[in-house]
């Protein structure tokens, strides 16, 4: 019974805080106020203040997590809706995403190696740009630590959401195509979620980039790692 109460409170609490975060984002439109960031920080604050362990929160949180699967399936709808437009820009999406995959692996490897981290950590960091299950599988193949890989994936996702305004300004990316490719290649589904908040078309581009990136990274990482280490 009490488990049920905990679950319901966690779900309703998350829902409420998420909507509060959306309101905050509507009032102050900055990267820093992206709903996923604000909601995460608010919930972490609540957990710390009331000394609630993460496992307790997850009694309810796991039900939201369970819906992440169908949520990703739902991304097929914008893809279908914009399929004619997307077909015309398929080549630049593919080329940009391929470049992104290579840049992500090589810069991650080089920087972590140069900073002197042990190889298990370097390998865990390498596939950070792709969605969690794929990154964990790749990490396992090349000899990294799977939970660590999941954290780096999250940092790439949240960090991308946090920095995207500045990055796009710096690289003069202003078209929905470039923005979608950038978000999907660098920050997987968390980036796609933020793109969807801008427009379904940008989100659709981001979805394609995310999927291509997952395939590309899982195929080329093992050989790139062998080549560079």
């Amino acid at each position: 019974m009490s488990e049920f109460v905990i679950a319901i409170s966690a779900i309703i609490g998350t829902f409420f805080i998420y909507h509060l975060a959306i309101r905050i984002h509507r009032t102050w439109r900055y990267s820093l106020t992206a709903p996923v960031l604000v909601a995460t920080i608010l919930i972490i604050s609540v957990l710390i203040i009331f000394r609630i362990p993460y496992e307790t929160y997850m009694v309810g949180g796991k039900w939201i997590n369970e819906l992440l699967g169908p949520a990703v399936v739902a991304l097929a709808y914008p893809l279908y809706k914009y399929k004619d437009t997307l077909k015309q820009v398929a080549a630049p999406i593919l080329a940009g995403t391929l470049l992104g995959g290579v840049v992500g692996i090589t810069t991650g490897l080089l920087l972590a190696q140069w900073a002197g981290f042990e190889s298990a950590i370097v390998y865990s960091l390498t596939p950070k740009s792709v969605t969690t299950p794929v990154a964990m599988a790749v990490t396992d193949t090349i000899g990294g630590v799977m939970p660590l890989a999941a954290i780096f994936v999250m940092i790439a996702g949240i960090g991308g959401v946090l920095m995207h305004h500045y990055v796009f300004r710096l690289f003069q990316v202003n078209h929905y195509l470039g923005r979608g490719v950038g978000m999907g290649s660098a920050s997987h589904a968390i980036g796609t979620a933020t793109s969807m908040e801008v427009s379904q078309l940008e989100g659709a581009v981001s979805t394609i980039s995310m999927v291509i990136s997952a395939v590309v990274v899982s195929i080329i990482t093992p050989s790139l790692v062998q080549l560079m280490m």
């Binding site: 993460y54 991304l75 999250m154």
Partner: peptide
């Protein structure tokens, strides 16, 4: 979509 990521990111 962002809503469904919150439990993971809180982790």
């Amino acid at each position: 979509l962002a809503f469904f990521f919150i439990p993971v990111t809180v982790g």
